[in-house]
C-alpha cells in the first residue's frame, strides 16, 4: 500500500522520474495526445480537428487545421495559454493543498494512487504557487489519481490520460518548427490586422453590416478602424476618445451575429432599449452589448451607465 509520503515524493520528484513521456488522453470527451522530452520539449495535440502546440525551451508555436494553420514563435512560455491535459503533467502545485490517500489502484495498466485534494484554509497565496489554477478547474475539494512511477496526475475531473508510456524514444520531428509539409498552410509570423482610416472604408471591407453610434460624448473623435486579419473570423474595432486626457473613451468591437450566440445571461441586464444589454465592467468601466441588423457590438466605456446605454442604443447600420 502506497503511503502519503510515497505520493508526495512522486509528485515532488516528477521532473526526475522520466526522461520522455508519451500519453493519450481525453478532456471533456475530446481525444488528445502529449509528448514530453526532458528537460524542456513538449507537444500537446488535439486529434480532430488537428491542432497542436509545441514548446522548446522558451520558444513555442501552434498549429490549427481549422484556422488554416497559424503559429507564433519566440514568446516566453509564460505567455502561452495552457492547453487541455497540460496541467496534469505538472502536479507540483498540488503539494500546497492537503492531499490524503484514498487507496491504491491501477490506471492505464500502471500502479496508481487515488487521492483527495483539499485547499488549505490559510492558503491565501495559491495564485503564487500555481494551486489556484487547479482549484479554478476542479474546485477546492476534488479527487484525483496519481501515477506512482511518474508523479503525474492521470485522472481528475473530466480529464484523463488513458495511455501512458515513459522513456521510449520520441521522434525529434515532433518538436521541429512546422514548415508547410502538406499538413496545412503555415505562417511563422502571426497575421496582421488590417487598419483603415475611414468608417466608409471599414464598412466596405468588414464583410458584415457595420454598426455606428449616432450619439457619442461631445467632442469624441474616432481612432483608426481595425479589421480582423484576412482569413480570420471578421471583426471591426474602433476607439472613440474625447480630448484632453482622454476625458472619455468608448471602445467598440463588433462582429457578425452567429446563430449559436444566445441572448446574454446575467450579469448582463436588459437596458430597456431593444437589443441592448448592460453590465458593470472592470474597475469603473461600463460594458454594453448591442444586437442589431445581424451584428453584435460590444462597447466598453468610462462613461456612467446611463450615458453608456445612450451610446449603445444609438447604434445603427452604416447607411
Amino acid at each position: 500500500m502506497a503511503t502519503l509520503a510515497d505520493v508526495l515524493e512522486a509528485i515532488h520528484r516528477t521532473d526526475e522520474l522520466y526522461r520522455t513521456l508519451r500519453a493519450v488522453g481525453r478532456s471533456d470527451g475530446e481525444l488528445w495526445r502529449l509528448w514530453v522530452e526532458r528537460p524542456d520539449r513538449q507537444r500537446v495535440e488535439r486529434v480532430d480537428p488537428l491542432e497542436f502546440k509545441v514548446q522548446v525551451g522558451g520558444r513555442w508555436w501552434e498549429y490549427s487545421a481549422a484556422e488554416d494553420g497559424w503559429t507564433s514563435d519566440g514568446e516566453a512560455p509564460s505567455f502561452v495559454a495552457e492547453w487541455p491535459l497540460e496541467r496534469l503533467l505538472d502536479p507540483r502545485p498540488l503539494l500546497a493543498a492537503v492531499i490524503s490517500v484514498l487507496g491504491t489502484s491501477t490506471h492505464a495498466n500502471r500502479p496508481a494512487v487515488a487521492v483527495h485534494v483539499n485547499r488549505r484554509k490559510d492558503d491565501n497565496d495559491a495564485d503564487d504557487n500555481g494551486a489556484d489554477e487547479w482549484y479554478a478547474a476542479y474546485g477546492e475539494d476534488f479527487d484525483a489519481v496519481i501515477d506512482l512511477a511518474t508523479g503525474i496526475v492521470v485522472s481528475v475531473g473530466g480529464d484523463e490520460l488513458t495511455e501512458l508510456h515513459v522513456d521510449e524514444a520520441v521522434p525529434s520531428s515532433l518538436f521541429e518548427v512546422p514548415t508547410g509539409d502538406g499538413s496545412g498552410a503555415v505562417r511563422i509570423e502571426p497575421p496582421e490586422p488590417r487598419v483603415v482610416a475611414t468608417l466608409a472604408e471599414a464598412a466596405r471591407s468588414a464583410g458584415f453590416r457595420v454598426l455606428v453610434p449616432a450619439a457619442l460624448p461631445e467632442g469624441a473623435v474616432a481612432g483608426s478602424y481595425v479589421l480582423a486579419p484576412a482569413g480570420r473570423p471578421p471583426s471591426l474595432s474602433v476607439r472613440y476618445e474625447v480630448a484632453p486626457g482622454p476625458r472619455a473613451i468608448v471602445q467598440v468591437r463588433q462582429h457578425p451575429h452567429a446563430p449559436y450566440e444566445d441572448d446574454p445571461a446575467p450579469p448582463w441586464q436588459p437596458s430597456g432599449s431593444e437589443g441592448v444589454w448592460v453590465r458593470d465592467g472592470p474597475g469603473f468601466m461600463t460594458e454594453v452589448l448591442v444586437r442589431r441588423s445581424g451584428t453584435t457590438a460590444f462597447l466598453q466605456t468610462d462613461l456612467n451607465q446611463q450615458a453608456a446605454v445612450q451610446v449603445g442604443a444609438s447604434m445603427e447600420p452604416v447607411p
Binding site: 453610434p213 460624448p217 461631445e218 467632442g219 469624441a220 476625458r247 445612450q310
Partner: peptide, 10 residues
C-alpha cells in the same frame, strides 16, 4: 473641464 462630456448626437 470640471465635468464629464455630455452624450449627444454625432
Amino acid at each position: 473641464p470640471p465635468s464629464p462630456p455630455v452624450v449627444g448626437p454625432t
